[in-house]
Computed example of a mutant assay.
Amino acid sequence: MTSLPQLLLVGNPGGRRTTLLAAACRRAGHRAPQVLSWRTVLADGPSRAGAVLAAALAAPAAPALVRIDSPGDDPVVDRLLRGAPDCAPRGAITAGPAWYRGFSTATAALGDAATAAGARLTADPADLGVLFDKAACHARLEAAGVPVPAALGAPIRGWDDLRAGLRRRGWTRVFVKPAHGSSAAGVLAVQLRNHHAGADVLARGPVQWHDGRPVNSLRPGTFRGETEVGALVDALAEQRLHVEQWFPKLVLRGRAADVRVLVVAGTATHAVVRTSRGSVTNLHLGNERGDLAALCVVLGDAGWRRVLDVAEASARCFPGMHTVGVDVLVGARAGSSGPAPTPVAVAEVNAFGDLLPNLPGLHRPDHDTYDAQIHSLTGVLTA
């Protein structure tokens, strides 16, 4: 009887993440991970996820390491996490409170089962819970002294709350984000150009209206006027909102730029410049990878080191996470501020921020993001 591999992955079989991780295992001389599908784990509900994992870990030569990976965009997994009777329509923005409860319940159960079996986890469920709550994540970073954009602390139940918060703070530009979302789902850049004329409001983001509901869109939607913007914010508020003051980004070769830094076991291993002609830079929205060398020239050695230092400081706020992706905003005045430190702020810390295919490593150009993780875990995998 063939023994089980040393690594067990809770993920989606056949998905890009699973395929890339398996390839990295093979390149390192390890067997491909045993895959326990999210659909199987959640079949009897999120609270029973631990029992499914426990059964897998009870087998002879059971894996010593458990990796909880992204549930991804599988509509069945999404339905099971939300406890909904039917799958959501394509493009629906579903990562709200119900999804978050299901995800938190499932990961906590998986963590308990792994611990009881003596297996090591690469992602701590408590840290995952904070990472998938943007307000809690922002608060943890801020408490640790990590630079973050200012945020509206009061609950945002809709447009009236948002408008009042902007006027109270004197802010005119903010990012409105579903608190439990990822991949820029439901994110809006909102601009209030006249505090005393509500009609002069503009919002833009990867959202469109469909059948009376906001849905994800790869093509940014533009919404004008208090009636239109207000209706959209009211609809998104059902998912719970986190609002941050706009941070003016560096413009690199005519495009707004920020940096996704992958931190593995405390060290920045990969970085990609994300550039856009709009405010949202996520690469899956058709934006472009920028020139990292050109950015480093603009920032200088000290400025680039600051970007990496801030990313690593962010990762230290989540000690139970082997790997995180940190989105670092670089200020518009970077490179022209003389001896002052390069202005930076952390926009997001991503629990599953490693899906960056064909990206060479900062220290090992031959290592993609999954090679770096497997290399870091080699001692466990070969134990």
Rank of each mutant, 00 (worst) to 15 (best):
V233I: 15
L202H: 10
V263G: 00
R240E: 15
F247L: 12
E228N: 15
E228D: 15
L241F: 04
A237G: 02
R204M: 07
R240A: 14
E238S: 13
R289H: 11
R253C: 01
E228T: 15
S217H: 08
T267F: 01
A231Q: 08
V280G: 05
P214A: 12
R240G: 02
T275P: 07
V280K: 06
V207A: 08
N282Q: 09
E244K: 04
R253G: 13
T222R: 15
G290W: 00
G205A: 09
V201I: 15
G225F: 11
G254W: 08
E244N: 08
A268F: 01
V263R: 02
R274D: 08
E244V: 14
G212F: 01
G266L: 07
A257Q: 06
D258W: 06
E238A: 15
V264K: 00
R240C: 10
N216L: 11
D200I: 13
R204L: 05
Q245D: 14
L241V: 01
V273E: 05
P220W: 05
E288F: 06
R289T: 14
V243A: 04
E244F: 02
R289D: 11
G266P: 06
R253M: 00
L285Y: 09
Q245R: 15
W246V: 00
K249I: 04
G278K: 07
E238H: 15
R224N: 11
G286V: 04
G254S: 09
D234R: 01
N287I: 13
R224V: 15
L285Q: 12
V263W: 01
A231T: 03
V272C: 02
N216V: 10
T269Q: 07
R277L: 13
R204A: 08
V259H: 00
R289I: 12
A231K: 00
A237F: 03
S276F: 07
L262A: 12
R260G: 03
Q239Y: 02
F223G: 03
A256F: 13
H242Q: 05
V261G: 02
E228H: 14
V251N: 09
P214M: 11
L236E: 01
N216Q: 14
T269C: 07
L218D: 14
G205F: 03
R274Y: 04
A237W: 01
R253F: 00
D234P: 04
V261Y: 03
S279A: 14
G254D: 10
A257G: 06
V207H: 01
L236W: 06
G266N: 07
D258Y: 11
R289N: 10
L241Y: 03
H270C: 06
G198H: 13
L232F: 15
P214T: 11
A231D: 05
Q208D: 12
A268L: 03
S279E: 13
E288Y: 02
V263I: 11
A268R: 02
A231L: 03
T222A: 10
V259D: 00
V261C: 09
A203Y: 01
E228W: 10
L202Y: 14
